[in-house]
């Protein structure tokens, strides 16, 4: 199994065995109508457990 370089420098100084939630950055937004339906303006936070993109190509 080839060794994939997974750890990058930035993670090395994080404490081990602790959960880590990255800070959200401002990204794309849904149109207002879509956002109200999806319950978020952020496609990046629209994460239903269905194993695929919630709204194809961000509802554009």
């Amino acid at each position: 199994m080839e060794k994939r370089e997974t750890s990058c420098q930035c993670l090395d100084d994080l404490p081990l065995a602790m959960a880590y939630v990255p800070m959200q950055k401002w990204g794309e937004q849904y149109a207002a109508a879509v956002a109200l339906e999806r319950g978020t303006i952020f496609p990046q936070l629209d994460l239903p457990f269905i194993g695929e993109e919630a709204v194809p190509d961000g509802g554009k």
């Binding site: 937004q29 207002a32 109508a33 956002a35 109200l36 978020t40 303006i41 952020f42």
Partner: peptide, 8 residues
Amino acid sequence: QYEFAVIE
């Protein structure tokens, strides 16, 4: 819709 976007 717009009220929701403002709150978000």
